[in-house]
Amino acid sequence: MPVSSAAVAEMTKVFENTFRAVNIALVNELTLLCDRMGINVWEVLDAAFTKPFGIMPFYPGPGVGGHCIPLDPHYLEWKAREFNFNTRFIALAGEINRRMPEFVVEKSMRLLSDRGMGLRGAKVLVLGVAYKKDVDDPRESPSAEVLHLLALRGAALTYHDPHIAHFTEQGHDLYSVPLTAATLKQADLVLLLTDHTAVDYDLVVKESAQILDTRNALKRVDGPKANVVLL
């Protein structure tokens, strides 16, 4: 697709990634509201995306990651300032998306609290540290921020990721533990942050005391799931 200048092509690219960041922020904001209202946001979205026109699927999660979506819109935001222009959608999307790790930690605290526990000393097993499913890329992963916030509050952290054996983002120094009945059983909370395909989710549901699923990954598991809470 030829366009008439380099600037048009540059704006096209940065718009594409901004479009994604803003729409993810929109479903993330809806998630925050649905949490307060006691409505299952995933059910809402699945229903909404049955409309064949005028809507496009985007899903909430523990934040945005990778080299593109968290970073690129800020390139445009910076350039706009030269023209005395504030890109308000970009700023707002960044604000909402960067808040999601805090929301995940807050909801984790609530779940532990309901069982008479606090985060301090709680054994939390994080499932997935890659920034999205089925990649081995930890860059800008929201898992890094979630782990950071959990560590600040004194949680005892372990993680499992089939694609990342050693996690060193944001100063972390953690090694993936094998996903076994024993590692799942010992965890006070299993926090599912990346929905990799190569994870035995039947085992996760069967052996975990409590799971916070931030990706609706356990949708694929049949049978009773009383121990699963969605973001």
Binding site: P2, V3, A6, A7, A9, K13, K132, K133, V135
Partner: peptide, 27 residues
């Protein structure tokens, strides 16, 4: 001199560098 942005979506099996359209701009 031209700008032709990458549209790589890592892990996307359906749309890859090979079958994703590219925009090309030059002044």
């Amino acid at each position: 001199l031209a700008y032709s942005p990458e549209r790589v979506d890592p892990g996307n099996a359906r749309y890859t560098t090979k079958n994703t359209n590219k925009v090309v701009g030059a002044s």
